[in-house]
Amino acid sequence: MALNAAAYAVTVFLLLPTLIIAPMSVGPERLLSFPPKGFSLRWYAAYFEDRDWLRATLFSAEAGLISAVCATVIGTMLALALVRGRLPGKGLIELLVIGPVIVPHIALAVAMFLVFEQLRLTGTLLGFAMAHTVLALPFVVFTLLAALYRFDVELERAALSCGAGPLRAFRHVTLPLIAPGLVSAALFAFIISFDEAVVSFFISDLDRKTLPRKMFEDIDFNISPTLAAVATMLTALTILALLLGFGLKRGLERRARAAGTAAEAGP
């Protein structure tokens, strides 16, 4: 009981700031205040009317999509190599993959800034996609490692014995069965990129910046409730994405497990 209560207390403490931001975003005043003295959607309107906000959002979405795709493709291949391959130095490769989780983001950010500056990659979509792919990779790899360890390798052998080449065995047998893991990995990667602030702060430039960076700037220059509106929408989007991913994953799992009550007639 006491433990339960403690757990709830911690959860509330952690969530409270996020929950407070929502009512703050609908206050009509020009300054952030809590509790709000009325209800107005003017700050949401302000967001949608501001080209800077929209550009930053679009840029974040682009970077998020590209790095989600890249991290998922590279991460899947990496996880496959780690699980199936007989490569030497597996431990070292795994260590390198975890790297971005262990190394402080600020150190990573400085390092990337120094390199990207030389290569003129700061403020470019390519630069962001690369940086965020690296950051998302560990999450993708570990999600897929779990999925691949659960997968019965003998099914791949069965596919080969049926005359499928390795690629077709992967496409027709492995891929459909690890699809739930793949979906969560891709969503993870997107959210990590979309939320990422530290590295983005360093490798943005004046007119190419991500949403979190733009929010930082707003705090510095004009604390308007638009910020609260953006934060609220960002939270809602993240929750929505997670719910969507969860639903999709459940659906795919159900298909993969293929239990239930299918009809007895032909397909």
């Binding site: 019965d152 052998r157 069965a158 014995s161 005359g163 065995a169």
Partner: peptide, 18 residues
Amino acid sequence: PNRRNLGMVFQRYTLFPH
């Protein structure tokens, strides 16, 4: 294996569950 044109039955049935 896929070029040997053999039939193979495994110990665990290894049917494709999906």
